[in-house]
């Protein structure tokens, strides 16, 4: 279990720094590859992927919103069906999380598949 949290922390940092430079979806490659290398059961891999991106996007969104986007975020929320800033940030973080989750699942399931083990 300890392993899980350490990996999550490392992934969050890796996801953050990659996203600062590379295209928006680059975190998926990082997560997929990491969970291909470090073996986790698929459910945990999904959870890891989800939490990695959810946490990264949530923290970074709140930071960006609070420091420089308090004027803009409500307007974008209005554009997306009248969401207030925090619900908007929650929704986008969940969306990011889902992509991360599938990336993690993909990494783990490929690893398990190649190793000939059943996907648990």
């Amino acid at each position: 279990m300890k392993n899980f949290w350490i990996v999550l922390l490392v992934l969050v940092l890796a996801c953050h720094f990659t996203s600062l430079i590379l295209p928006w979806w680059s975190f998926a490659a990082v997560i997929g590859l990491s969970l291909f290398i470090i073996r986790f059961p698929v459910k945990k891999a999904f959870l890891l992927g989800f939490l990695t991106v959810f946490i990264t996007w949530l923290i970074w969104s709140i930071w960006m919103y609070q420091t420089n986007a308090t004027v803009l975020t409500p307007k974008i929320g209005a554009l997306f069906g009248g969401l207030s800033p925090m619900p908007l940030i929650l929704v986008l973080s969940i969306l990011g999380g889902l992509i991360g989750g599938f990336a993690g699942w993909a990494g783990a399931s490929l690893r398990n598949g190649l190793a000939g083990k059943p996907a648990v």
């Binding site: 928006w24 420091t67 986007a69 803009l72 975020t73 986008l92």
Partner: peptide
């Protein structure tokens, strides 16, 4: 492009201009 637009690293949150 929703992923691009909603990602806090590339999307609208980069366009904040409080300052």
């Amino acid at each position: 492009r929703l992923g691009y637009f909603l990602s806090p690293y590339t999307g609208f949150l980069q366009n904040g201009e409080d300052h």
